[in-house]
Design a protein around this nucleic acid. Structure first.
Length: 500
RNA sequence: CGGGACGUAGCGCAGCCCGGUAGCGCACCUGAAUGGGGUUCAGGGGGUCGCGGGUUCAAAUCCCGCCGUCCCGACCA
């Protein structure tokens, strides 16, 4: 494996730094098809840990998993006007089902096999799911219907970046139907809360939440709630969305039920999703110039043990101790890996595992075995103690799981501190906003009159958008009174930033 | 699709200007020593030089065409 020492630094070129980490931490690889990516085992392991945690949370809130088809009739997509318009420019279509040899012997689509109606490769599944729901729901007793699916989706992108924007990506999409608007609204905000908890507790991403402006909302939704994180280059990353769909899809797909009153009514829907993009968010939030930094809860390997020895006798002795410590930690549900590769010296192993973001390393050498100690080293400097610490080997078994949790909390705290340090509140002057956006970047909190023209102007001139109209928790103590763009009366506080 | 750069071994590159049959570093394989923060020595394997055509005795190198990738702009989880 080629491995030319140091990474490009974040300072020198954040984008190059990111690309190098993705490659060199073996998260993903390029594929022969532009815009699609191969997720390698280590990267997929992170995603699996995310999936497991989220799936448990979805089940705990009453949802069931199902699977809906990849192919959607084109006519379904076109039924909801705003929905088609939103996705029209990035749709992959299946139009033929056979190949045939032309005059030159080249394989081409067989004209005779052309489909009467093209099939869309799902960019999202609202249409096909609510069509199914319409057949499953007759009475208010069938509601609420709380479904989730884990799937891949395709949105044909012009410019792609590993994990952050690829033409195909993995995600989960929750889809629910409710008898009342209030219930649907409650569901949409509940799931926003679930994501928030997940991103805080598992990914250590200090996100802010809020509602999207009409221009930025999901096509077909009444309202879109979103979670936004700030990366180390001070650009925002949308980390998840939860949509209140109202009755828009229910009307188009005839999703009706008989209410308690006997009246026939359209159901109220929500949909919500998070994707493999979060892996990119974790990289850009926690990573440093030595490589990836993973929060312990989603790290495929939480502790790597590097045995140190010279002679064969030492090797046997040290590996035996390593196995013992590893098994004791595994009994505490710590994910441990012993790097017993004989062809590599300890130093290079340290660099490799640091590059891959493993939260803690344990070094065990002959001297440690004799003293019944182990040397622990955290991935980064942190506030919970010294980075390197010799521990009594029995104490280590109980201390390490706690230490990993402490480290997890440290990462969240650091992420929130960085976010707040790059958040500029009470900006009521357009030039001041310009200076920030065109300078160091970050979140700009301002007043907004609610007009799309003002929003458009900022997007055109500064390439920044309203990330969210923040939830109460994130609003500034002193609410701005005027729109930062036009000076008109402010309707709501807005958070602006350049975004991925 | 507009502007720019680049395609030579797994990765990073040199060679091209001035044509002579492919090289360096890392990685990989074998052996020995080494081993608490990027080890050393010896030996070795691996390349349709992006693709197609042209010029030439001879093309990685010169000419024409195509394809692809990356970066910058317009769309986006």
């Amino acid at each position: 494996m080629a491995d030319d020492k140091a990474l490009t630094t974040r300072e020198a070129d954040f984008s190059a730094w990111y690309n190098e980490i993705v490659q060199r931490a073996e998260l993903a690889d390029y594929s022969p098809v532009r815009g699609s990516m191969i997720i390698r085992p280590y990267g997929y392991g992170i995603w699996e840990n995310m999936q497991r945690a989220l799936d448990d949370m979805f089940k705990a809130t009453g949802h069931q998993n199902a699977y809906f088809p990849l192919f959607i009739p084109l006519s379904f997509i076109t039924r909801e006007a705003e929905h088609v318009e939103g996705f029209a420019k990035e749709m992959a279509l299946v139009t033929h089902t056979r190949l045939i040899k032309d005059a030159d012997g080249t394989l081409v689509p067989d004209p005779a096999s052309k489909l009467d109606e093209p099939l869309v490769v799902r960019p999202t599944s609202e249409t096909i799911i609510y069509d199914a729901f319409s057949r499953w729901v007759q009475s208010y007793r069938d509601l609420p219907l709380l479904i989730n699916q884990w799937a891949n989706v395709v949105r044909w992108e012009m410019r792609t970046r590993m994990f952050l924007r690829t033409s195909e990506f993995l995600w989960q999409e929750g889809h629910t139907a409710h008898a009342t608007e209030a219930e649907a609204e409650e569901e949409a905000t509940r799931m926003l809360g679930v994501y928030r908890e997940f991103q805080d507790d598992w990914l250590a991403l200090g996100v802010i939440t809020g509602v999207k402006s009409p221009a930025e909302k999901f096509p077909g939704a009444d309202r879109t709630y979103s979670l936004e994180a700030l990366m180390q280059d001070n650009k925002a990353l949308q980390c998840g969305t939860s949509h209140m769909l109202g009755q828009n899809f229910a009307r188009q797909f005839d999703l009706k039920f008989q209410a308690e009153s006997g009246q026939e009514e359209y159901a109220w829907n929500t949909s919500w999703g998070v994707s493999t993009r979060m892996v990119g968010g974790v990289v850009m939030t926690h990573g440093d110039d030595s490589g990836l930094v993973l929060p312990p809860r989603v790290a495929p390997i939480q502790v790597v043990i590097v045995p140190i020895y010279r002679k064969d006798e030492e090797r046997t002795l040290v590996l035996e101790k390593a196995e013992f410590v590893a098994n004791a930690l595994r009994a505490e549900r710590v994910r441990v890996h012993i790097d017993a590769r004989d062809s590599m010296k300890p130093g290079p192993k340290y660099y490799e595992w640091e590059r891959k973001g493993v939260p803690m390393r344990i070094e065990i050498g002959p001297r440690d075995v004799a003293a019944q100690k182990v040397m622990t080293v955290m991935r980064t400097e942190w506030t919970g103690g010294d980075r390197k610490e010799a521990m009594d080997e029995t104490a280590a078994i109980t201390v390490i799981p706690k230490r990993l949790e402490d480290y997890q909390r440290f990462l969240l705290k650091r992420s929130i501190e960085r976010r707040e340090a790059a958040s500029h509140r009470g900006i009521d002057d357009y030039d001041a906003m310009r200076t920030i956006i065109e300078g160091d970047g970050g979140f700009v909190y301002s007043g907004w009159c609610g007009s799309e023209d003002c929003e458009r102007k900022v997007k055109d001139e500064l390439k920044a958008t309203i990330r969210v109209l923040p939830s109460e928790e994130f609003r500034s103590p002193d609410q701005p009174q005027q729109c930062v763009v036009c000076g008109g009366a402010s309707q709501a506080e807005a958070v602006w930033a350049r975004a991925y």
